[in-house]
Amino acid sequence: MTALSGSGPAVCIGADIDTDLVIAGRYLRTKDRSVWAQHVFEDLDPGLAPRLKGAVLIAGKNMGCGSSREQAAVALREAGVLAVIAPSFARIFYRNSINVGLPVIECEIPGCHDDMNITFDCVDGWIAVDGKKYFFRPLSSRMQEILNTGGLVEYWKRRLER
């Protein structure tokens, strides 16, 4: 199950963060999903990983550009990120995130700083930042369904049972 709404402290990262920076190529060849969470953002800022549990990641434009590695989205989810918010996403990262059960929200949050507290609701399409509200287009019903079931694995399990 993925929570389509939630609340947590902001962790701010920059624009054009590529998937090599989320999880480096040298850690990809394993079945152990916890390895990716351990090394998430290692080449960007090794101090980030311990702060991700229960946090809302706020990125700049073009979040997740570059390689198609799904491990990037898995790493963030396994590290405990509740949702990723960015003004724009690279499309494969966007798709991968939904598929692994990590909510992604296209919305610009000006002046991101780490003390902010973020509340989000993907069903109604709003984010509250220290009391101020921002609105975004709610996720499509199919994306909500995939997220709701916990990702594509659960989604397909259910579809095949029907």
Binding site: E70, I92, V153
Partner: peptide, 13 residues
Amino acid sequence: TGVGASDMAGIWI
């Protein structure tokens, strides 16, 4: 176009 691993598994199925 490109997709990630889960999408590929979905296409296999």
